[in-house]
Protein backbone atom coordinates (compact mmCIF):
# COMPACT_ATOMS: atom_id res chain seq x y z
CA UNK A 1 0.00 0.00 0.00
CA UNK A 2 2.72 2.37 1.12
CA UNK A 3 4.75 1.31 -1.83
CA UNK A 4 2.17 2.43 -4.35
CA UNK A 5 1.75 5.81 -2.70
CA UNK A 6 5.48 6.47 -2.97
CA UNK A 7 5.40 5.41 -6.53
CA UNK A 8 2.40 7.59 -7.07
CA UNK A 9 4.12 10.60 -5.52
CA UNK A 10 7.26 9.97 -7.55
CA UNK A 11 5.20 9.84 -10.70
CA UNK A 12 3.53 13.12 -9.80
CA UNK A 13 6.85 14.80 -9.11
CA UNK A 14 8.29 13.53 -12.32
CA UNK A 15 5.36 14.97 -14.22
CA UNK A 16 6.24 18.36 -12.80
CA UNK A 17 10.00 18.15 -13.29
CA UNK A 18 10.08 16.54 -16.70
CA UNK A 19 9.29 19.67 -18.77
CA UNK A 20 12.06 21.57 -17.04
CA UNK A 21 14.49 18.76 -17.70
CA UNK A 22 13.52 18.75 -21.34
CA UNK A 23 14.28 22.43 -21.79
CA UNK A 24 17.29 22.35 -19.46
CA UNK A 25 19.94 21.52 -22.12
CA UNK A 26 19.16 24.70 -24.03
CA UNK A 27 19.29 26.86 -20.94
CA UNK A 28 22.47 25.28 -19.65
CA UNK A 29 24.16 25.83 -23.01
CA UNK A 30 22.73 29.33 -23.19
CA UNK A 31 24.02 30.24 -19.75
CA UNK A 32 27.48 28.80 -20.36
CA UNK A 33 28.02 30.03 -23.91
CA UNK A 34 25.84 33.15 -24.12
CA UNK A 35 24.70 34.38 -20.71
CA UNK A 36 28.04 34.22 -18.95
CA UNK A 37 30.07 35.87 -21.76
CA UNK A 38 27.38 38.55 -22.16
CA UNK A 39 27.43 39.46 -18.51
CA UNK A 40 31.20 39.31 -18.23
CA UNK A 41 31.62 41.49 -21.33
CA UNK A 42 29.27 44.03 -19.76
CA UNK A 43 31.36 43.97 -16.60
CA UNK A 44 34.51 44.12 -18.68
CA UNK A 45 33.34 47.36 -20.31
CA UNK A 46 33.79 49.06 -16.93
CA UNK A 47 37.31 47.68 -16.59
CA UNK A 48 40.47 47.97 -18.59
CA UNK A 49 43.08 45.28 -18.98
CA UNK A 50 46.75 45.57 -19.53
CA UNK A 51 48.78 42.55 -20.45
CA UNK A 52 47.41 39.18 -19.57
CA UNK A 53 46.40 39.53 -15.94
CA UNK A 54 46.22 43.11 -14.67
CA UNK A 55 42.67 44.42 -14.57
CA UNK A 56 41.57 47.78 -13.20
CA UNK A 57 38.16 49.36 -12.62
CA UNK A 58 37.81 52.49 -14.74
CA UNK A 59 34.12 53.32 -14.28
CA UNK A 60 32.65 55.03 -17.33
CA UNK A 61 36.06 56.01 -18.72
CA UNK A 62 35.80 53.61 -21.64
CA UNK A 63 32.47 55.10 -22.66
CA UNK A 64 33.64 58.71 -22.42
CA UNK A 65 36.86 57.82 -24.26
CA UNK A 66 34.81 56.24 -27.01
CA UNK A 67 32.74 59.38 -27.49
CA UNK A 68 35.95 61.36 -27.96
CA UNK A 69 37.62 58.81 -30.22
CA UNK A 70 37.75 60.10 -33.83
CA UNK A 71 38.41 56.62 -35.24
CA UNK A 72 35.25 55.33 -33.56
CA UNK A 73 33.18 58.11 -35.15
CA UNK A 74 34.81 57.46 -38.49
CA UNK A 75 34.03 53.75 -38.22
CA UNK A 76 30.46 54.53 -37.14
CA UNK A 77 30.07 56.77 -40.18
CA UNK A 78 31.56 54.14 -42.51
CA UNK A 79 29.22 51.52 -41.11
CA UNK A 80 26.19 53.80 -41.38
CA UNK A 81 27.23 54.67 -44.93
CA UNK A 82 27.26 50.98 -45.76
CA UNK A 83 23.88 50.44 -44.09
CA UNK A 84 22.38 53.32 -46.09
CA UNK A 85 23.90 51.88 -49.24
CA UNK A 86 22.24 48.59 -48.43
CA UNK A 87 18.94 50.35 -47.87
CA UNK A 88 18.83 52.47 -51.03
CA UNK A 89 20.73 50.24 -53.41
CA UNK A 90 20.81 46.62 -52.36
CA UNK A 91 17.22 46.11 -51.17
CA UNK A 92 15.53 47.87 -54.13
CA UNK A 93 17.69 45.81 -56.48
CA UNK A 94 16.69 42.67 -54.59
CA UNK A 95 13.01 43.61 -54.87
CA UNK A 96 13.38 44.42 -58.54
CA UNK A 97 15.02 41.06 -59.23
CA UNK A 98 12.28 39.31 -57.27
CA UNK A 99 9.54 41.00 -59.27
CA UNK A 100 11.37 40.18 -62.47
CA UNK A 101 11.67 36.51 -61.55
CA UNK A 102 8.05 36.43 -60.45
CA UNK A 103 6.73 37.76 -63.74
CA UNK A 104 5.35 35.53 -66.45
CA UNK A 105 7.67 36.86 -69.14
CA UNK A 106 11.05 35.71 -67.83
CA UNK A 107 12.41 32.39 -69.00
CA UNK A 108 14.79 30.10 -67.12
CA UNK A 109 13.60 31.22 -63.70
CA UNK A 110 15.09 28.30 -61.83
CA UNK A 111 18.51 28.91 -63.27
CA UNK A 112 18.34 32.67 -62.63
CA UNK A 113 17.13 32.13 -59.08
CA UNK A 114 20.13 29.92 -58.38
CA UNK A 115 22.51 32.28 -60.18
CA UNK A 116 21.39 35.31 -58.17
CA UNK A 117 21.37 33.36 -54.92
CA UNK A 118 24.74 31.67 -55.40
CA UNK A 119 27.01 34.57 -54.29
CA UNK A 120 25.77 34.30 -50.71
CA UNK A 121 27.14 30.76 -50.58
CA UNK A 122 30.67 32.07 -51.15
CA UNK A 123 32.60 32.94 -48.00
CA UNK A 124 33.12 36.68 -47.52
CA UNK A 125 36.89 36.26 -47.55
CA UNK A 126 36.92 34.82 -51.08
CA UNK A 127 34.50 37.46 -52.29
CA UNK A 128 36.82 40.12 -50.92
CA UNK A 129 39.86 38.60 -52.62
CA UNK A 130 38.08 38.41 -55.97
CA UNK A 131 36.73 41.95 -55.70
CA UNK A 132 40.19 43.15 -54.80
CA UNK A 133 41.15 42.16 -58.32
CA UNK A 134 37.96 43.53 -59.84
CA UNK A 135 38.41 46.94 -58.23
CA UNK A 136 42.10 47.12 -58.97
CA UNK A 137 43.07 50.52 -60.28
CA UNK A 138 45.15 49.39 -63.22
CA UNK A 139 44.39 45.80 -64.10
CA UNK A 140 40.93 45.56 -62.54
CA UNK A 141 37.85 44.55 -64.47
CA UNK A 142 35.85 47.68 -63.64
CA UNK A 143 38.44 50.28 -64.59
CA UNK A 144 39.95 48.28 -67.38
CA UNK A 145 36.98 46.78 -69.19
CA UNK A 146 34.25 49.30 -68.56
CA UNK A 147 36.16 52.53 -67.98
CA UNK A 148 32.77 53.80 -66.88
CA UNK A 149 34.12 56.96 -65.42
CA UNK A 150 36.48 58.09 -68.12
CA UNK A 151 39.49 57.77 -65.82
CA UNK A 152 41.11 55.20 -63.63
CA UNK A 153 39.43 55.27 -60.25
CA UNK A 154 41.45 54.26 -57.24
CA UNK A 155 38.62 52.24 -55.76
CA UNK A 156 40.65 50.87 -52.92
CA UNK A 157 43.47 53.38 -52.81
CA UNK A 158 41.55 56.66 -52.48
CA UNK A 159 39.59 57.14 -49.28
CA UNK A 160 36.32 58.37 -50.76
CA UNK A 161 35.87 55.41 -53.11
CA UNK A 162 36.51 52.71 -50.52
CA UNK A 163 33.05 52.46 -48.96
CA UNK A 164 31.26 52.68 -52.34
CA UNK A 165 33.42 49.75 -53.43
CA UNK A 166 32.42 47.83 -50.32
CA UNK A 167 28.74 48.64 -50.91
CA UNK A 168 28.90 47.45 -54.52
CA UNK A 169 30.52 44.23 -53.37
CA UNK A 170 27.78 43.87 -50.78
CA UNK A 171 25.14 44.27 -53.48
CA UNK A 172 26.72 41.49 -55.50
CA UNK A 173 26.91 39.19 -52.52
CA UNK A 174 23.61 39.75 -50.75
CA UNK A 175 21.05 41.15 -53.21
CA UNK A 176 20.26 37.65 -54.45
CA UNK A 177 19.80 36.39 -50.93
CA UNK A 178 17.27 39.09 -50.08
CA UNK A 179 15.65 38.50 -53.44
CA UNK A 180 14.68 35.03 -52.25
CA UNK A 181 12.77 36.51 -49.29
CA UNK A 182 10.97 38.98 -51.53
CA UNK A 183 10.20 36.24 -54.01
CA UNK A 184 8.64 34.10 -51.29
CA UNK A 185 6.60 37.12 -50.22
CA UNK A 186 5.47 37.83 -53.79
CA UNK A 187 4.38 34.26 -54.31
CA UNK A 188 2.26 34.49 -51.18
CA UNK A 189 0.13 37.35 -52.56
CA UNK A 190 -3.26 36.12 -53.64
CA UNK A 191 -3.76 36.29 -57.37
CA UNK A 192 -7.44 37.29 -56.98
CA UNK A 193 -6.36 40.70 -55.72
CA UNK A 194 -4.65 41.45 -59.01
CA UNK A 195 -7.56 40.03 -60.97
CA UNK A 196 -10.02 42.22 -59.07
CA UNK A 197 -7.81 45.26 -59.63
CA UNK A 198 -7.58 44.47 -63.32
CA UNK A 199 -11.35 44.35 -63.49
CA UNK A 200 -11.39 47.79 -61.87
CA UNK A 201 -8.98 49.04 -64.54
CA UNK A 202 -5.84 49.43 -62.42
CA UNK A 203 -2.55 49.68 -64.30
CA UNK A 204 0.69 47.93 -63.43
CA UNK A 205 1.99 50.76 -61.25
CA UNK A 206 -1.26 51.05 -59.29
CA UNK A 207 -1.21 47.33 -58.66
CA UNK A 208 2.38 47.57 -57.42
CA UNK A 209 1.67 50.47 -55.05
CA UNK A 210 -1.70 49.30 -53.73
CA UNK A 211 -1.38 45.53 -53.75
CA UNK A 212 2.22 44.35 -53.99
CA UNK A 213 3.88 46.70 -51.51
CA UNK A 214 1.23 46.52 -48.75
CA UNK A 215 1.07 42.73 -49.04
CA UNK A 216 4.86 42.52 -48.83
CA UNK A 217 5.02 44.68 -45.70
CA UNK A 218 5.88 41.91 -43.23
CA UNK A 219 8.60 40.59 -45.58
CA UNK A 220 9.96 44.07 -46.20
CA UNK A 221 10.07 44.75 -42.47
CA UNK A 222 11.89 41.47 -41.86
CA UNK A 223 14.44 42.01 -44.65
CA UNK A 224 15.03 45.63 -43.62
CA UNK A 225 15.69 44.76 -40.00
CA UNK A 226 17.86 41.75 -40.74
CA UNK A 227 19.85 43.70 -43.36
CA UNK A 228 20.40 46.59 -40.99
CA UNK A 229 21.65 44.27 -38.27
CA UNK A 230 23.91 42.52 -40.79
CA UNK A 231 25.19 45.86 -42.10
CA UNK A 232 26.13 47.11 -38.67
CA UNK A 233 27.97 43.87 -37.98
CA UNK A 234 29.98 44.11 -41.20
CA UNK A 235 33.51 42.78 -40.77
CA UNK A 236 35.20 40.29 -43.09
CA UNK A 237 34.41 41.93 -46.43
CA UNK A 238 36.02 45.34 -45.77
CA UNK A 239 38.69 43.75 -43.56
CA UNK A 240 40.12 41.81 -46.49
CA UNK A 241 39.12 44.24 -49.22
CA UNK A 242 40.86 47.19 -47.55
CA UNK A 243 43.67 45.27 -45.87
CA UNK A 244 42.47 46.16 -42.37
CA UNK A 245 40.75 49.49 -43.07
CA UNK A 246 43.41 51.26 -45.13
CA UNK A 247 43.88 53.89 -46.37
CA UNK A 248 43.52 56.14 -43.33
CA UNK A 249 40.64 54.15 -41.82
CA UNK A 250 38.49 54.79 -44.89
CA UNK A 251 37.29 51.20 -44.72
CA UNK A 252 37.20 50.66 -40.95
CA UNK A 253 33.81 49.49 -39.66
CA UNK A 254 32.69 49.34 -36.03
CA UNK A 255 33.30 45.61 -35.69
CA UNK A 256 36.71 45.96 -37.33
CA UNK A 257 37.60 48.64 -34.81
CA UNK A 258 36.36 46.37 -32.05
CA UNK A 259 38.58 43.58 -33.34
CA UNK A 260 41.58 45.87 -33.60
CA UNK A 261 41.17 47.07 -30.03
CA UNK A 262 40.56 43.64 -28.59
CA UNK A 263 43.09 41.55 -30.47
CA UNK A 264 45.73 43.92 -31.78
CA UNK A 265 45.84 46.58 -29.07
CA UNK A 266 44.91 44.20 -26.21
CA UNK A 267 42.36 46.72 -24.91
CA UNK A 268 39.73 44.22 -24.00
CA UNK A 269 37.71 46.59 -21.83
CA UNK A 270 37.53 49.17 -24.59
CA UNK A 271 36.60 46.48 -27.12
CA UNK A 272 33.80 45.28 -24.82
CA UNK A 273 32.56 48.86 -24.61
CA UNK A 274 32.47 49.16 -28.39
CA UNK A 275 30.51 45.90 -28.49
CA UNK A 276 27.87 47.18 -26.09
CA UNK A 277 27.58 50.54 -27.80
CA UNK A 278 27.09 48.69 -31.07
CA UNK A 279 24.41 46.56 -29.43
CA UNK A 280 22.57 49.69 -28.29
CA UNK A 281 22.82 51.25 -31.76
CA UNK A 282 21.46 48.12 -33.43
CA UNK A 283 18.65 47.76 -30.88
CA UNK A 284 17.55 51.38 -31.32
CA UNK A 285 17.64 51.19 -35.11
CA UNK A 286 15.78 47.88 -35.21
CA UNK A 287 13.02 49.07 -32.88
CA UNK A 288 12.71 52.35 -34.76
CA UNK A 289 12.41 50.50 -38.05
CA UNK A 290 9.77 48.14 -36.75
CA UNK A 291 7.79 51.05 -35.34
CA UNK A 292 8.05 53.05 -38.55
CA UNK A 293 6.81 50.08 -40.51
CA UNK A 294 3.99 49.64 -38.02
CA UNK A 295 4.86 46.09 -37.05
CA UNK A 296 4.00 46.65 -33.39
CA UNK A 297 0.53 47.93 -34.21
CA UNK A 298 -2.29 45.48 -33.74
CA UNK A 299 -4.42 45.19 -36.80
Amino acid sequence: MQNTSIRHRFWNQQQKIAPYLFIAPFFLLFIVFMGYPLISSLIMSFYEMRGFQSKIFVGLDNFTDLLRDPVFWKSLWNTTYFALGTLVLQLPIALFLAILLNSKFVKGKNFLRLAFFAPVLVAGVFVAIIFNLIFDQRAGLINNEFLLFGKEIGWLSEGRYVMPAVILTGVWQWAGFNMIYFLAGLQGIRQELYEAAAVDGANWWQCFIHITLPSLKPVIAFVFVVSMIGSFQLFDLPFILTNGGEPADAGTTIVMYLYKNGFQFMRLGYAATIGWVLFIIIAVISIAQLRLLGIFKEE
Binding site: R50, G51, F52, Q53, S54, F263, F265, M266
Partner: peptide, 12 residues
Protein backbone atom coordinates in the same frame (compact mmCIF):
# COMPACT_ATOMS: atom_id res chain seq x y z
CA UNK B 1 54.39 43.94 -29.43
CA UNK B 2 50.92 43.22 -28.05
CA UNK B 3 52.26 40.14 -26.25
CA UNK B 4 54.69 42.34 -24.33
CA UNK B 5 52.00 44.43 -22.65
CA UNK B 6 51.61 44.42 -18.91
CA UNK B 7 53.95 43.84 -16.02
CA UNK B 8 57.17 42.09 -16.97
CA UNK B 9 56.42 38.94 -14.94
CA UNK B 10 53.04 38.55 -16.67
CA UNK B 11 54.54 38.25 -20.15
CA UNK B 12 53.73 34.84 -21.59
Amino acid sequence: GRFLKGAIDEIG
